[in-house]
Amino acid sequence: MAAQIFAHKTTALTNPPNYALTSHRLCRTLHTSTKQPIVLVACGSFNPITYHHLRMFEIAKDFIQQNTNFEILGGYLSPVSDEYKKAGLVSAHHRVNMCALATEQESSWLMVDSWEALQTYQRTAAVLDHFDYEINTVLGGVSTRDGERDVQIMLLAGSDLIGTMSEPGVWSHDDLDHVLGHHGTFVIERTGAALDQVVDSLARWRNNIYPIAQQVQNDVSSTKVRLFFRRGLSVQYLLPAAVIDYIEQNNLYPDDGPCTEKDRGKESESGEVDTTSSESGRNVQSTLGTETTRLSN
């Protein structure tokens, strides 16, 4: 069944100069005509991208194949714009490049999209609508034996991020209804954020929220990776080798030098911890009716 068309739309979308959606790995033909075609989108800082971000997509893929009537046509990482202005956020140019290196070398079906990174700050609802427009209007959806069909765009996020959706003043009701009611989301369990509580707090959209438990717990985060870089510790096997080389070549997360016990205590007090999803840790700035946190650190 094709994705339901909702009357609510976000504001008009514009593209940066010379922009085109990366689609070289996007499947354009639906293999099983009885299934609903979907594309997964993960929004976040990816500062830097880690193996856990890539692993999230594989966890969702297994769940979807075994438990749903969806067929995945592709997956996208959408790095946040520099306008987010989070402390320690390296430029969007570098974050897009790191995501491109990771997806091209470590995956056969994931891609990175630069649209959000090249814009001013964009709400999650607008980002998902952007993918909807590019895939269904510009590219014409997906081919089936019965003709063309629209693809449903679905958010991929961690349970800690989705937990912020029930916090007053963080997300507007219209955006929640659009993201969860129209698009839908797959929620990956994250250490310290209970899946049942997350879903219960958003009961109105329960039928469009798909919680997924992790079989192998993984608490690797961009926050911890940056801390390792600052301390001069090894990050081997926490993120792709090509990304490590890129970071070192561009000196993106400089080593602060030897860290004393006193310094470690200060770091612990500074709030440098991972609190949101797989690219979590984007602090919640509670501006009434405005969504200001998403997937990543």
Score class of each variant (00 low, 15 high):
R190E: 10
V179H: 11
L161T: 00
H130W: 06
V187S: 06
S166H: 02
H182D: 08
G163D: 14
L139E: 07
G158H: 00
G163H: 06
T185P: 02
T120I: 07
T164R: 02
S114G: 11
T144H: 08
H173G: 00
D129K: 07
M165W: 06
G163F: 03
I153T: 14
R145M: 10
S172K: 10
F131M: 02
G192I: 09
R149T: 13
A126P: 04
V179E: 01
I188T: 10
V142W: 12
F186I: 01
D160Y: 04
A125Q: 04
L128K: 04
I188A: 06
S159C: 02
V151T: 11
L180Y: 09
L161N: 07
V138N: 13
Y133V: 05
V199E: 12
V127P: 06
L195E: 08
A126W: 07
Q197A: 14
H178W: 08
H182M: 07
N136K: 09
V187Q: 03
R190K: 15
G163V: 01
H130Y: 13
R123T: 04
T191L: 13
M154T: 06
G140P: 12
Q119W: 05
V170T: 14
V127N: 09
L195A: 09
D146N: 11
M154I: 10
H178V: 13
W171R: 08
D177F: 06
G163T: 00
Q197S: 15
D177S: 11
T191K: 15
G141A: 10
R123H: 02
L180V: 09
F131Q: 01
R149F: 13
D196I: 03
I188L: 13
E167G: 04
F186T: 01
I162D: 00
L118W: 12
A157Y: 02
V127L: 10
D200V: 11
D150G: 11
E148S: 15
D175M: 05
I153C: 02
W115C: 10
V179D: 01
F131H: 02
H130V: 12
T185R: 00
A193L: 01
I162K: 00
R190I: 08
V199I: 15
V170D: 11
E116P: 13
D200M: 12
